[in-house]
């Protein structure tokens, strides 16, 4: 049954992707991409990847759609029709590549095959050792935060790069680095005039933020963690901003605070790593943080997940405000 359902969803994804490419109205294309992401999230969930599904739903369908809409408001609504040169030649090359790639998948292990190499080497070790070495139920959080915590540190820096980069790019030729609430005209888009979205949005926003906090501090037990929490909290605040307008939303969480959160999260994460170095361990070796290694791992995970959550919330909201508070010329 799952297989049939999965096949159906995957086919839908291909159709939606083709529809996106063919669509000339950019607003429609962005909304279709949101649907594409939701389908993707459902598929990921069917593949037993609950954490990834949650992230894809929050970031792919939620945040990136909002950002794209914000950019659309500042740029254009429709794509112009144009005919690229050498159209058929490149289509032919791509079809050839497609056939070659399809052919190369023949030797791939069948999906779900317990004998596949991926289920032999490192993965069983994680599943066996997590209860012993780290003692938390969610193995994904254990791998993400501890076994491959260094990757995650890199990932937080990736998101920080995007945050600093967007602020840098969008402050060209201006006097302020961060959006200034006092300079924003009070006529930005909002839903206050539309009763139903207004009421529902206002009701939902606090619950989304609350759920975000739950995901933040419950990530060791259930699906979720800093990334998902950061994306959810950011989504909640963005919803508030869409309902009430940009100025009250900036007043609620000032840009300086968001900037501080973005940088503070990285400092917290790196600081945990440095602390473990000072205590005689390797970088990000949480075991040395406490006399009991397992307690040390717990504390380490808690702190670095908090750092991740801070940076993700801070950066996503900073980026959102950088678009939303900008006046279209």
């Amino acid at each position: 049954m799952t297989l049939v359902f999965g096949t159906f969803l995957l086919s839908m994804m291909v159709l939606v992707a083709i529809a996106i490419v063919r669509e000339h109205n950019l607003f429609v294309a962005v909304m279709l991409s949101a649907i594409f992401s939701l389908l993707m999230a459902t598929n990921l969930f069917l593949l037993d990847a609950a954490d990834v599904a949650l992230t894809e739903a929050a970031i792919g369908a939620g945040i990136s759609t909002v950002l794209a809409l914000g950019a659309l408001a500042l740029t254009a609504e429709a794509e112009q029709r144009h005919r690229p040169k050498y159209r058929w030649l490149s289509i032919a090359i791509m079809v050839l590549a497609l056939v070659a790639l399809l052919y190369s998948t023949q030797d791939n292990p069948r999906i779900g095959d317990p004998e596949a190499p991926v289920h032999q080497h490192v993965a069983p070790w994680y599943l066996e050792q997590t209860p012993i070495l780290i003692d938390i139920p969610n193995v994904v959080t254990a791998v993400l935060g501890s076994f491959r915590g260094y990757d995650t540190f890199g990932e937080v820096l990736v998101i920080l790069t995007a945050g600093i980069g967007v602020l840098f790019l969008l402050s060209a030729g201006r006097n302020d680095l961060l959006p200034n609430p006092r300079r924003i005209p009070d006529n930005t888009i909002r839903l206050r005039q539309h009763t139903i979205p207004h009421v529902i949005g206002k009701l939902l926003a606090p619950f989304i933020i609350l759920f975000g906090l739950y995901v933040q501090f419950h990530g060791e037990y259930g699906p979720g963690g800093g990334f998902q929490a950061g994306a959810l909290i950011a989504a909640g605040v963005i919803l508030y901003g869409l309902v009430e307008g940009e100025r009250p939303s900036l007043a609620l969480v000032p840009p300086n605070l968001l900037y501080g959160l973005s940088l503070g999260g990285v400092l917290l994460y790196g600081g945990v790593g440095i602390a473990s170095m000072l205590l005689g361990g390797n970088f990000l070796d949480y075991s040395v943080l406490m006399t009991d290694p397992i307690a040390g791992q717990h504390w380490g995970l808690l702190l670095i997940e908090l750092g991740v959550g801070m940076t993700v919330t801070g950066v996503l909201l900073s980026i959102y405000h950088a678009f939303a508070a900008r006046d279209p010329h």
Binding site: D48, D51, T55, S64, Y126, V140
Partner: peptide, 18 residues
């Protein structure tokens, strides 16, 4: 299920939005 690809893709999703 194997946790490792999930961890990698969490990273990749974040790289994507960045």
């Amino acid at each position: 299920a194997n946790p490792l690809p999930q961890v990698l893709i969490l990273t990749a999703i974040v790289v994507g939005i960045a």
